[in-house]
Write a protein that binds this DNA or RNA. Sequence first.
DNA 1: CGCTAGGTTGAATACGCTCAAAGATCGTGG
DNA 2: CCACGATCTTTGAGCGTATTCAACCTAGCG
Lengths: 268, 268
Amino acid sequence: MKFKLIAYKSPKGTLPPLIKKFDYLYPLNNVEIASLMKLHQYCLHFDSKKTFLEAGDMHEKSYIVMRGWAFRYELLSNGNQQIINYYLPGDIISPFAAVMPKTNYSVASVNKMELCVFENDELIELFIKHPRIGLYYGWMLGREDSSLAEQIVRLGRRSAYQRTAHLLLELFHRLKIVGLAYDKENAFPLPVTQQLLADTLGMSAVHMNRTLKKLQHANLITVSFEKIYLDDIDSLKQVAEFENTFLEQAKSHLLTGFNGFRNIASSA
Amino acid sequence: MKFKLIAYKSPKGTLPPLIKKFDYLYPLNNVEIASLMKLHQYCLHFDSKKTFLEAGDMHEKSYIVMRGWAFRYELLSNGNQQIINYYLPGDIISPFAAVMPKTNYSVASVNKMELCVFENDELIELFIKHPRIGLYYGWMLGREDSSLAEQIVRLGRRSAYQRTAHLLLELFHRLKIVGLAYDKENAFPLPVTQQLLADTLGMSAVHMNRTLKKLQHANLITVSFEKIYLDDIDSLKQVAEFENTFLEQAKSHLLTGFNGFRNIASSA
DNA sequence: CGCTAGGTTGAATACGCTCAAAGATCGTGG
DNA sequence: CCACGATCTTTGAGCGTATTCAACCTAGCG
């Protein structure tokens, strides 16, 4: 697959979502922002529903999601697929490409996407020049580890009803951080089909449909056109036993407790 | 919790399992081995069935498993637990502690364990001094990411029978790398109870028992005292649709394709 | 206007759960 | 050395959640 690379142009006055996320964790200095901008030089554009990374192929580059959603999945021989996780704006696809280019998983777009590509060598240079950025990167990986762990708990030990509530809450919180949720109305754009939600939560599309209906009848959510309202977040959290430790508490810690930042000066 | 720290003594002529694993990926030089040994200075010992990291507590240190098995889990309000992953010798517990000390998860020992503790600052210093070690660490994190992804696919889209076969194959392969499987007889020590296996694969202990029986009657495995034989690996792989890409193919790549190692000299 | 993709609903079925009780194994203390 | 308790394993029976299959509905698009 060949795609035209287009220089990335940040809309006036806004930072790319990855930088926004890092800055949300702990303010970046200008040198660091400039260095991170170098990862945003070239963009790819994809249509919806395209598998752009195939299982078994070498994944030798990493991608930053600028717009749109993607997901990582595995296909099984009976035609079923399991979605492992979603990539939202600000997330990095194949963050381990530098050291683990071969994987069992494919990655596909949900809707129209804009991605920035960067090379392994750029990333490694960045870490050497700016050790602090390595810490941000590590923090991001740690969040993703937690996110996969949550997905495991959802699939292993929660009912379909709880699973669905739990996933919706997680997506809402992740989108909020990059400014893509409708904060005031507790809603967010949900571009995925019920079939994809079912493939995410290990259930059939039929049962996904019934479960969403049940959540609506309980006045917990409202589903409108590609947009979902969390009408009663407290009840949803209770139903799902949702803990957002890994999404919210992480922030305060690096601000207060961690002294690695003080010992290690950014070398620029 | 306070524990006496005991200096780690490597048995004559053997390397600690973490170093063995790294060296298996790509040979380490003596300086790097010496640096990694510094992470092995202090040991903790735990009895079996002790939760030594509690959900919600600060996880400010990382631990290298020297002997024994541990697992990361989440407890739910109905008393059920979901095991997220196992930590085998050579694995690092809380590898993101440096940047993400607060988590939702607890970690407990399966059997008697020996762990080496190290501080965040030591790790970050190591990365700065020896960038190559950062790559090994990243490779290890990438494998763990794949391992969690496999667990998600198991739980989401495989039957109890397939799940069980798949997990056993993964454990066997991971133990082989650190030299803890009985290679010739295709067997390995399995110190966990059927209840824990059930908690790993999101099923009841009763059904776990029936599933193991079914695998035995199909002549795929033999369970003896804390030891399990994979009598027919090919059939097991077929049943489970087991792909070991992430465990075996990763090796050859760094040996041949990756040039980051050539560009970046270890600075010692 | 008809095609296609996605959503909705019903009915029969199956996989795995819960509850319950009985074996097996092991460590401990009498 | 045996008895006892604790933990783990095994087996049976009834039940429930979620699946499968099938049909129909709906909305967007060429």
